[in-house]
């Protein structure tokens, strides 16, 4: 089956995720705080009975996001995580993007050229590892 990408923005930058990694795009949910986590982890939400962490993606990349954003809920089989992002731009097929460079950070797969501008394709496993290492570094 053809691979598709979900394009979104956060903190003024463009990103992409494999569409199969996202199960739902939704409005902000009730969230409940957690102690001793990095600021980018906003808290927990109840996603169909699964306790799901919300990651403010703009804060994660060291930027400032919007308050009226969207939640990208990742496939619970892959992670108990939802990304708080500024805006979902589009869902595009693989042939509509052009890989122009490899990713720089270990949670980036590649830089893509799209009709919506340059987007960084995320590597989910790398992203989870990065968040986990930040959690481990919390005092």
């Amino acid at each position: 089956m053809e691979r598709r990408y979900l394009l979104f923005t956060a903190g003024g930058e463009g990103f992409a995720l494999g569409l199969g990694e996202v199960v739902e795009v939704r409005e902000r949910a009730d969230l409940f705080p957690l102690p001793r986590v990095p600021e980018a982890i906003l808290g927990l939400m109840n996603y169909h009975g699964n306790l799901t962490a919300i990651l403010d993606f703009a804060a994660f990349i060291g930027s400032l996001g919007r308050n009226d954003g969207k939640l990208l809920v990742l496939d619970p089989k892959l992670a108990a995580l939802a990304l708080w992002v500024d805006e979902v731009k589009a869902i595009v097929p693989e042939e509509a993007v052009e890989v122009v460079a490899e990713g720089e950070r270990h949670w980036e797969t590649a830089t893509l050229n799209t009709d919506f501008g340059t987007m960084t394709l995320l590597r989910l496993e790398g992203l989870l590892e990065e968040v986990e290492s930040q959690l481990a570094a919390e005092p």
Partner: peptide, 15 residues
């Protein structure tokens, strides 16, 4: 309930 990834690594929280 378990916290799953990535929060399963939070020290001091069992679920």
């Amino acid at each position: 309930k378990p916290l799953g990834r990535p929060l399963g690594k939070v020290a001091g929280v069992a679920g």
